[in-house]
Design a binder for these strands. Structure first.
Length: 569
RNA sequence: GCGCCUGUAGCUCAGGGGAUAGAGCAGCGGACUUCUAAUCCGUUAGCCGGGGGUUCGAAUCCUCCCAGGCGCACCA
């Protein structure tokens, strides 16, 4: 509601002894449009004025009676609320003018100019297949990247590949014992995955395998030739496989700095911890005691001298700050690692880095089966590749059925199929666990990406049919849009900028996803009530401008989620 | 044992101090000679997990309990 809120804030400031910005924040949308468009709750003034909220609302309305502003036309008390009615004419003009003049920039701002946000996302463990579990970090992180970028921040996307650690020892042991060159070259990632599962099956009865794996990882850290050669081969094969998925999803990273990237910095990091006096020897290992802060101790170096995940994360954080000078560093990593990040940030703080407070763990819930957790080790995971493919295939079938004459069915199927999977991960609050259910993934009706894309395609269809129509902006045309459905749609279009801000504020792409469903819903209502092409010329033009603005909002919003908007589907 | 997260309609979830708690799915009933029916309209459905508390006002904040999930030194 941009300008309207500001206007009312400034209007009330001298009357209620609150700051204008505070008043703008307090303004809420009434539950029923009949009540008005923006409501000021008078409870907040009751105790100070020693007056009942309802009588405050009444007296404020007295003061304002007969007055009107640019964007509001009247203020009516209703119980404890002072309800403002927005002037649909000036508001409609302003909203359409904004959207249609700013176009692809509508919803964007320069608020973050000059500041850098480093975003750590996707970060799969090499040598494991890209499972459905990895999609959350990938898709949420990518959306946050796009959202912060839209607010003018310089974003650095880092894929912190899990390409180092004891699991490589396990893989090397497995391959040396049971490996088969031929099978490895046929289907590398799948085969490595099978070896990984086999290792865990065997190690249950043969604990010596674990020791052997640790030994091989130690060799790897020491740069022993055979270990390094095997590691580098496994890493390369995995990366080649991931590249296909990132390509399909259109996901880019500025850096593929995996854990191994920080190997040369580990000694310095450990030295720093020692020199600051926060690390000490315990049972042969090097640990940091965090008991004072209510956290369990952290191990930086094992008794065999090998490092751990958190050691590399420490080195990575310092490297990132020194390299990029971030204002914020986001870690889009599962909620189960919350403790890890609390420990990581606390150690950074103890090392004296004031920027430790700019590090944020952006957690998300687990994807699980009805029966329980997905586990790479147990070999019960669902491959992302399969999910994407099935979704695309189903989209294709539906298109064949509903729109058999469509020229480029593949492109539309890709947009709808991938959009569905993406949206499924973005539309709910990220902290919630999600139960994996094929029926749900493959459902394209209701609150889904397809719903939004469909609204967009309908608009494009109308605009195509109106090709040649004069769509030059004329201020007065907006005045013709007085039907309830038209006004509701305009109101929905008005709030994209504040939704983008809110999404960034809470690191919650779901804010935008839900908002787009609302916009699409308002458009669909409009569509059923308000004919465009068959209206007379002035109204037709006004409605064409309105739906063009709606199209722009849908495209911009979907764009922030990394979801394509096909013109036909 | 300790810590963190979640609990809202039959199912999946919005809403995170303010007006009678909202959507989608499923169910039931309607709307395609008319801009794509992947749509729209109507309708059924709720001690907002439970008890206490703070507040003019609590689904929302505090506290205790219950249920589910996730963590807690040689994995990542």
């Amino acid at each position: 509601m941009f300008k309207a809120k500001e206007e009312i804030g400034a209007l009330l400031e001298p009357l209620v002894a609150l700051e204008a910005s505070r008043i703008s924040e307090l303004l809420e949308v009434p539950p029923d449009p009949e009540f008005g468009d923006l409501a000021f709750p008078c409870y907040v003034l009751a105790s100070r004025r020693q007056q009942a909220p309802a009588s405050i609302a009444a007296s404020l309305s007295q003061v304002l009676s007969g007055r009107r502003g640019v964007f509001w036309e009247k203020a009516v008390p209703k119980g404890p609320y002072l309800n403002f009615f927005i002037d649909p004419l000036s508001f409609g003009r302003e909203v359409l003018r904004q959207v249609l003049s700013r176009r692809a920039d509508y919803g964007r701002s320069s608020r973050g100019r000059g500041q850098t946000v480093v975003i750590d996302y996707s970060s799969p463990n090499i040598a494991k297949p890209f499972g459905i579990g990895h999609i959350r970090s990938t898709v949420i992180g990518h959306a946050l990247y796009l959202i912060f970028e839209a607010l003018g921040y310089r974003c650095i996307g880092i894929n912190h590949l899990g390409d180092w650690g004891t699991q490589f020892g396990k893989l090397i042991v497995s391959f040396k014992r049971w490996g088969d060159e031929e099978r490895l070259s046929e289907d590398p990632v799948n085969y490595l995955y099978q070896l990984y599962v086999k290792f865990h099956q065997r190690s249950e009865t043969d604990p010596a395998l674990e020791d052997e794996a640790r030994l091989w990882f130690k060799k790897l850290e020491e740069g022993e030739a055979e270990a390094v050669a095997a590691w580098s081969r496994f890493r390369r094969l995995s990366l080649e496989n991931y590249a296909g998925i990132y390509d399909l999803l259109g996901i880019k990273f500025d850096y593929f700095h995996g854990e191994s990237h920080y190997n040369d910095l580990l000694d310095d990091t450990i030295r720093l911890a020692l020199s600051k006096g926060i690390a000490r020897e315990s049972e042969g290992a090097l640990i940091v005691d965090l008991e004072k802060y209510g956290l369990p101790p952290v191990m930086l170096r094992k008794k065999d001298g090998a490092t751990l995940y958190i050691t590399r994360d420490l080195a990575a954080a310092i490297y990132r700050y020194e390299t990029f000078g971030f204002a914020k560093a986001l870690y889009v990593v599962g909620a189960e690692q919350k403790l890890h990040f609390q420990q990581l940030f606390k150690i950074l703080e103890l090392l004296g880095f004031e920027w430790a407070h700019s590090c944020v763990h952006v957690p998300f819930g687990l994807i699980r089966f009805k029966e329980g957790r997905m586990s790479t080790r147990d070999g019960n995971i669902i491959f992302l590749q399969e999910v994407l493919q099935r979704s695309i295939n189903l989209a294709r079938e539906i298109i064949e059925d509903k729109n058999p004459d469509l020229a480029d069915k593949s492109a539309a199927a890709l947009a709808v199929g991938l959009g569905a999977v993406r949206f499924g991960d973005l539309s709910n609050d990220r902290i919630k666990d999600v139960e994996f259910d094929w029926d749900k993934v493959l459902d394209f009706s209701g609150e889904t990406a397809a719903y939004i894309q469909y609204a967009h395609a309908r608009i494009c269809s109308i605009l195509r049919k109106a090709a040649g129509a004069d769509l030059a902006w004329e201020e007065g045309l907006a005045d013709l849009l007085q039907q309830e459905e038209e006004k509701a749609l305009i109101k929905a279009l008005a709030v994209l900028p504040e939704k983008v801000e809110a999404a960034a504020e809470g690191y919650r792409p779901s804010v935008i996803a839900r908002y787009l469903v609302e916009v699409a819903r308002e458009f669909n209502r409009f569509y059923h009530q308000c004919p465009v092409l068959s209206s007379d010329s002035a109204l037709q033009k006004a409605r064409l401008l309105l739906i063009d603005a709606a199209r722009q909002v849908l495209v911009n919003g979907l764009g922030l989620l990394g979801i394509a908007a096909p013109a036909e589907m």
